[in-house]
Nucleic acid binder design. Structure first.
Length: 761
DNA sequence: ACGCCCCCACTTTTT
DNA sequence: GTGGGGGCGT
């Protein structure tokens, strides 16, 4: 065991505000912790201080974090400080904590403690079913929109009645009905969705004072990390838990609130003193992570936001490289540049694991992956198509889920015919009708179907066989380890055999994924003392993408900016710093949403310790068609002297021999001239990178595609829907430029150049 | 009932 | 460019 601290000498390692935060006594405490200001250290030291100095039993401390990974780290660090004294310290995410509470006490609400947790896909099929039962047109009320609205309501801790009261949308009454039916379906399936985990815990606490009393007694101290990203349901939960002794310590930074779309509200941190009278506030403003150049650049961006507490983050790491701004002609060159720079820096002594590549959307990872692959770099992608969401993995997990909770109709429907065993749509539909008519569970309805003389002989046999094999598995489910059960499922269902038979590249990759699933279950069992099926299913339902990230592996890491929260890397690349991508086009009409994008940008930039690269591509393929994006407004918000601008001069996307025009980024107040705008010369296409910042963003509708290549009459173009054609002429100018195209299929069409998906061929 | 093929919608971000 | 869902042919 490492050198443990018996007294309080570890306080010497802290700066004054940190020490104040660690040693502050009882009562509500808010720690406003700027990026890289050592908040994890403060939290763990505070836990250690409570235990060592104030004699608090670790079992009476609850700490919540945003991801399981952060929870694991905090637990490890607390153990390192406290050793075995760390005892029963509970650190978890809100969701895992609530799951634990509900497993114990949900029976008060009339649910069974064996509930399963539905993921997004499951809840969407549930929403679909709810729509059918409400007799609503799925074309107008899409399952995903319904799911979204319900989720939003749950994040605000609203039930169907609450949603009805607050419904402001035209959909209002319908959504409320769907929500009711959806909720009833969850109950029938003995299932909960993510939102329910929090909301039902709040409900439990509010309706059963004895229960909340028990937990208040249990958790004398409550610590909440990433408080800026809590939603209303979580806020109410925190209030309920802290109501007694008020030993509440919240840590957060409103500049890093990036989950408002998940219901997180910045008000929680801004109103902390109002919510918890007598609250003490400590600000941590010294950054220990980044160079001054990086910190200044990031600070300049986020300073544009209105809704924030004024604070000044500083570092003693003076100087440092200015952030490198790179403009690439397209996303391929952007990716190649990144890989080239990685090569260069590696020769300077950086390790592969020192590099992180961030992007706004998961779809952007592919190009950079290909480039890394081409140069033989080891890399890891965090997130993207989630492992547990893959069809074959979900299928096998659905078996486990159904064995654990036979009422899970969504899971049952998933496995009833996978692998294909001759049970088709009509049979399933009949079973569902029967279930509805007689008020049976789907499993019982299937049984009834087998016994019904009117059912076709073939269907009776097939369904009967399926149910019999399920029964066989059921017998063992209770006693076998999850890994052994999975092996049994694979053996008896013939799932892998069928795939092996197909012998296609896809089926082989599916088998590989299944092997990976088996391996991961073994790993789980090794790390979990009493590994049961239930614990396993909970765990996989509640994992975050980033949880599996192994920072000790020496690999380049790729992830979305969202996933990067809470991490740090010596070298950070941020790709796709373009209007429509970052800030995302879906955010740009809403000033609040733009502020959130800006915070996201800030989060990304402040992950960098030593070097920061920002890049944008003039053109990029999105959905397979070519788009031209302006540089992100966030780039223009960084003072020029903090940027080292580079342009891809080595590869022409204009006429090959000519050097491309230097990009012009307008800075407010800077006396820069109009962007270069000259007449295209023969054989040359001019691309205008400028974007107009004089008009306050957002009030210029659809201004994403200002810079478009100069098209001329006679150019051959192609359109994704209309096919190929020839440009007849151009009308108007600027954003309102229209192109008249004669298509080969016949007919001419006039298209808005800025919006159309025309591509030069 | 199955499998193939076409077409569409998809891209914010995720516990 | 891709994956899922629906429709159609066997």
């Amino acid at each position: 065991m490492m050198n443990r601290m018996s007294g309080t000498e570890f306080l010497d390692q802290l700066n004054p505000p940190q020490r104040e935060a660690v040693t502050y006594g009882g009562g509500p405490l808010l720690i406003v912790a700027g990026a890289g200001s050592g908040k994890t250290r403060v939290l763990t030291y505070r836990i250690a201080y409570l235990v060592r100095h104030l004699g608090v039993d670790p079992g009476r401390i609850l700490a919540t974090t945003f991801t399981n990974k952060a929870a694991g780290e905090m637990k490890n660090r607390a153990r390192a400080l406290l050793g075995t004294a760390a005892g029963d310290l509970w650190v978890g995410t809100f969701h895992s904590t609530c799951t634990r509470i509900l497993r114990k006490d949900i029976h008060h609400l009339g649910y069974s403690p064996g509930f399963v947790i539905y993921d997004e896909k499951d809840t969407e099929s549930l929403a679909k079913e709810a729509l059918r039962r409400c007799d609503l047109d799925e074309k107008i009320y899409t399952p995903s929109a319904m799911r979204w609205q319900i989720d939003r309501a749950k994040n605000d801790c609203l039930g169907p009645e609450g949603l009805a009261a607050s419904a402001d949308r035209a959909f209002g009454p319908q959504v409320t009905r769907v929500y009711e039916v959806y909720q009833q379906l969850l109950r029938e399936n003995n299932a909960l969705d993510f939102g329910d985990l929090i909301r039902l815990t709040v409900m439990l606490f509010e309706r059963f004072p004895k229960v909340v009393e028990w937990y208040r007694e249990k958790w004398e101290h409550v610590l909440v990390d990433e408080y800026q990203d809590t939603n209303m349901a979580q806020y109410r939960l925190v209030r309920l838990l802290a109501a007694g002794q008020q030993n509440l310590c919240c840590v957060g930074d409103e500049d890093q609130n990036i989950y408002s779309w998940r219901g997180a509200t910045i008000r929680n941190i801004l109103d902390f003193e109002k919510d918890f009278p007598g609250a003490h506030v400590v600000k941590l403003e010294e950054n220990y992570r980044s160079t001054n150049a990086i910190l200044q650049a990031a600070g300049a961006v986020v300073a544009r936001n209105r809704r924030r507490r004024e604070k000044s983050l500083w570092t003693s790491r003076s100087g440092g490289h200015p952030a490198t701004l790179y403009q690439a002609p397209n996303e391929f060159e952007e990716a190649r540049y990144v890989v080239r720079e990685i090569g260069k820096l590696r020769r300077e002594g950086f390790r592969a694991g020192d590099f992180a590549i961030f992007y706004r959307t998961n779809a952007q990872s592919r190009v950079i992956e290909e480039c890394l692959l081409a140069d033989n770099y080891a890399y890891t992608v965090v997130g993207g198509v989630k492992f547990y969401a893959r069809a074959e993995v979900k299928d096998l997990l659905a078996y486990m889920r159904v064995l654990h909770n036979p009422l899970d109709a969504v899971g049952l429907k998933r496995i009833i015919n996978s692998p294909p065993r001759g049970i088709g749509k009509t049979t399933i539909a009949r079973a569902e009708d029967l279930a509805r008519e007689r008020g049976l569970h789907l499993a019982d309805a299937l049984r009834a179907l087998v016994e019904d003389e009117r059912t076709g002989a073939a269907a009776r046999r097939k369904v009967g066989d399926f149910l019999a094999s399920l029964r066989e598995l059921q017998k063992e489910a209770g006693t076998l380890l999850p890994s052994a059960l999975l092996q049994q499922i694979i053996a008896r269902s013939g799932y892998v055999d069928k795939l092996r038979h197909q012998d296609t590249p896809e089926s082989l990759s599916r088998i590989e994924n299944i092997d990976e699933l088996v391996t991961s279950i073994y790993a789980f069992e090794e790390n979990t003392p009493d590994a049961t099926l239930g614990i396993y299913l909970d765990q996989i339902s509640l994992v975050a993408d980033v949880d599996s990230l192994d920072e000790t592996a020496d690999r380049v890491v790729l992830m979305t900016v969202h996933s990067a929260k809470g991490l740090e890397f010596p070298v950070v690349f941020m790709l796709g710093m373009e209007e429509t991508l970052f800030p995302h086009s879906l955010s740009r009409d809403d000033p609040e949403a733009v502020e959130e994008e800006r915070r996201l940008c800030y989060v990304g930039m402040t992950r960098a310790k030593d070097r920061l690269y920002l890049s944008h591509a003039v053109s990029r393929r999105v959905f397979g068609s070519l788009r031209f994006n302006d540089p992100s407004r966030f780039l223009a918000e960084i003072p020029e002297e903090l940027l080292d601008s580079q342009v891809a001069a080595d590869r022409g996307w204009a006429a090959p021999e000519r050097s491309p025009a230097r990009p012009v980024i307008h800075r407010p107040g800077a006396s820069s001239s109009r962007p270069l705008r000259r007449k295209p010369q023969d054989g040359e296409r001019v691309i205008d990178y400028s974007f107009d910042q004089s008009s306050d963003y957002g009030d210029e509708p659809g201004d994403g595609n200002a810079g478009v290549p100069a098209l001329e009459a006679g150019d051959r173009v192609s359109h994704p829907n209309l096919g190929r054609g020839t440009v007849e002429r151009l009308e108007g100018e600027g954003r309102r430029t229209r192109v008249v195209v004669r298509f080969e299929r016949g007919g001419t069409r006039t298209l808005m150049l800025a919006y159309s998906e025309l591509e030069i061929v």
